[in-house]
Design a protein around this nucleic acid. Structure first.
Lengths: 229, 229
DNA sequence: AAGCATAAAACGAACGCTCGCTCTATTTTA
DNA sequence: TAAAATAGAGCGAGCGTTCGTTTTATGCTT
């Protein structure tokens, strides 16, 4: 699958994300009109991601956020009820979006090799489109309330599980060598994460997301495949 | 090489690190007696790593640090001249230690395959011993002064370069397939970093650092090696 | 060995400032 | 013209940092 194709069939826009966020959290958002809410929520969340990914969420002050969004402190607090609340909404919405997109794409494919490719492409392409979200979720998890760490761990293990199942399937059908499933999934996850954590490096070297996906499949193919099939 | 062997020949202790740090920064440290300085610098830096790796350097207050170390605010400021200064010393010393250990180990080996194994083991073993330092350097780089980002990038590319050279050598002698050198080094780096970034995961699964090193060599071996040699 | 003088180290209250957050007045929208 | 949205001064808490003081260690004299 090409990146362009993926982009076309992703099925949600930035506006959709913020519309959903607005409707889900109408209790704590004091703004009534959807159109106004979406417009400014987008400004607030985009600015939060931008500032936080530059210097960290806890180093971002709400005055930073106010000047970046062009909203006053008072206005800001009509959209969020606290700074912690902003963090919570980011995590919640981020995880929902990622989860939904991942599950949707890899269902309905049979061949382990094709499923593996599709899972890798989906992860990479989604992280390409939503790089600030992915980066934020990765780097700021520790700032979140300790009780919520479980969710972060679950989420890490969930995506790893997708790969575990695919590899197990491949091994049981004889298409893959009998490798260490847990370790293999772990390094796949690590390589996928490198794409959004070290964007600057790949950008500088003009490696496209398709190049990177192809390269990962090469590496994994040579490791997983039986010598002569 | 076994992890135990590496540990034995590493050639410096925790005390050595703090002694060097003391001597290098005697200008900004107001403490005179080496013994006292080393003892408390160790307390301060260990506590900083511990608190920061839990909730982030910028979320750590000096009062946190004071109560964790058992030193008063005033005493703290006899050892550091500012919070930024503490960050700077951590980065400086961290990079020196890592750099020195890496360069030392991989010199004097000829075979590309052995050099690759040695480089991987050295990285992993060192990050196993100094996990809090590695984790800190990775996660807190963005909090550092922007001018210092160059150093962080250099340091990332430096370790990648070690692998690039090894792989290029292997290709030119015909022992490795002609793969994409830059991308291959990049994913090696990513897999090495996963070891100290996701310690909890590997601990939980009781994967030892030797297991992990062996696994990486397996994966890379199958990718780099000519089909029939 | 004890007493004493001085240097070294530790203490912690206090300072100025910025933080997250609130509240009332004002402007914009429909 | 009433409701919705924004503005921004102001609040107390907590931040990094300083500094006058107290405690501890060291070396010298008797």
């Amino acid at each position: 699958m090409k990146f362009k194709t993926f982009k076309g069939q992703i099925g949600f826009s930035k506006e959709d994300i913020y519309r959903e966020l607005f409707k889900e959290n109408q209790a704590r958002i004091r703004i009534k009109k959807e159109k106004t809410a979406i417009k400014n929520l987008a400004r607030i969340f985009d600015a939060t991601l931008s500032i936080s990914n530059d210097k960290g969420f806890s180093a971002m002050s709400l005055r930073d956020l106010s000047s970046e969004t062009g909203l006053s402190m008072g206005a800001l607090y009509s959209y969020i009820s606290s700074k912690d609340d902003l963090l919570e909404m980011l995590f919640q919405q981020g995880r929902i979006v990622v989860f939904r997109a991942l599950v949707k794409q890899i269902s309905g494919i049979d061949s382990p090799r094709d499923r593996l490719r599709m899972a890798i492409q989906t992860h990479l392409y989604l992280s390409e489109i939503m790089q600030p979200w992915f980066y934020f979720l990765y780097m700021e998890t520790k700032n979140f309330r300790k009780e919520e760490h479980k969710k972060a761990i679950e989420s890490e293990l969930f995506t790893e599980n997708i790969f575990q199942e695919i590899i197990e399937q491949g091994i049981s059908t004889g298409q893959f060598r009998p490798v260490d499933v847990a370790l293999t999934s772990a390094i796949i996850k690590a390589m996928l994460q490198d794409w959004y954590l070290k964007r600057w490096k790949y950008e500088r070297r003009t490696v496209s997301v398709e190049d990177y996906a192809g390269f990962l499949m090469e590496v994994l193919g040579s490791y997983l495949h039986l010598e002569n099939t």
